[in-house]
């Protein structure tokens, strides 16, 4: 890892001020599980001059419920989110998604805000200087996406504007299905917006000096069923090949409300609105679930190596709906 200046920010405002001062040449660090890897692999087009530590900011690590809204401070560690009994009871989808991130050590270090803001995992983008070969791709100011014409088995099956990397955050997928909001603070003040708007074209849709400060999750109806599936080769360490988050509310077997989000298949969390509209008002059974699976991938257009994600996605969407119906959890 090359040299940099380091600052321990005492307040969010101080961190924003530093970011402004460095004018794009500083990075904020929370858990560091992604940023330090990025710095060690030296993949950024411009190595940052300064690192600004957010962990020294007081009062950004909390889990609380206020007026039917779950509020999580952005510095709350993933292991704390995963093990919170409040979240396990009412927002289990989020708990499960957090528990499926990385490894125990990564969850002890990584924060919920950091998970949302991590960089993409595309292996062309991530090719380290230690390998010798660096791909000067679109994300680095180049004019080619090497994945499109290369090995793209882990990339998007729903296209992308230029970069076809997928959204790497498990938490983002779960929060999308939970209809959560993100609160940020930047030089222009605070704003609150849906988590789905945090991403645009395989990148963070944030101002350069804007910092995520809080996650807000509306309380799901008590009868809502929440399921998280993360399909991957191994049961630890891997990122999702495909992930599905569902929240389903039934009334006498009929779908009253449903939200489904897909991960690992698109540059941003993919909400399945059409599938949701189809399911609402319908009986949930193996037929409707199967149809939902088919609809989920109807508009997929795979790249050269990743068409196998289509049958996986189709099957998982079907399964998730049936599991939610039957109150089953993944074994």
């Amino acid at each position: 890892m090359k040299r940099f200046e380091h600052f321990n920010a005492k307040t969010i405002d101080e961190a924003i001020l530093l970011l402004e001062k460095y004018d794009g040449e500083a990075k904020v660090i929370a858990g560091g599980t992604d940023l330090i890897r990025v710095l060690k692999d030296d993949i950024l087009p411009k190595y940052p001059k300064a690192i600004i530590n957010l962990k020294t900011i007081a009062n950004l690590e909390y889990i609380k419920e206020e007026n039917g809204v779950l509020k999580i401070g952005s510095l709350t560690r993933l292991s704390d989110v995963a093990s919170s009994s409040l979240i396990k009871t009412k927002y289990n989808l989020l708990s499960e998604a957090c528990r499926s991130v990385g490894t125990p050590q990564i969850r002890n270090m990584g924060t919920i805000g950091g998970n949302l803001c991590q960089d993409v995992q595309c292996w062309y983008y991530r090719a380290s200087k230690s390998l010798g070969k660096v791909f000067h791709c679109l994300r680095k100011g180049g004019n080619v996406c090497y994945a499109v014409s290369g090995d793209n088995r882990f990339h998007s099956i729903f296209g992308g504007k230029g970069c076809v990397a997928v959204c790497p955050s498990d938490v983002a997928i779960a929060l999308t299905a939970l209809d959560a909001l993100v609160k940020t603070k930047g030089p222009l003040g605070e704003r609150v917006f849906p988590v789905s708007e945090l991403y645009k074209d395989a990148a963070l849709n944030l101002g350069r000096s804007e910092i995520v400060t809080e996650i807000q999750v509306p309380e799901p109806p008590p009868e809502a069923r929440q399921i998280w599936i993360k399909f991957r080769l191994r049961n630890s360490l891997d990122f999702a090949i495909v992930s599905v988050a569902v929240m389903l509310t039934l009334e006498e077997g009929v779908c009253k409300d449903v939200r489904i989000a897909l991960g690992g298949v698109a540059p941003t969390p993919k909400r399945l609105k059409e599938v949701e509209d189809f399911l609402k008002g319908n009986y949930i059974n193996s037929e409707t679930a199967e149809k939902a699976g088919k609809m989920a991938v109807a508009k997929a257009f795979p790249l050269s190596h990743n068409a196998y994600k289509i049958p996986i996605t189709e099957s998982l969407v079907k399964r998730v709906i049936l599991m939610a119906k039957d109150h089953r959890t993944l074994t």
Binding site: T103, Q121, W123, Y124, A127, S128, L131, G132, K133, F135, Y146, S149, G150, D151, R153, L233, R234, N235, S236, L237, D238, F239
Partner: peptide, 24 residues
Amino acid sequence: IYDEKTGTPLNASFIEYPIPTALD
């Protein structure tokens, strides 16, 4: 897994070269 155009090994990590973990 190689990038066939450049001969670069792409999965040079314990994340993308998946050796079994304790949960496997």
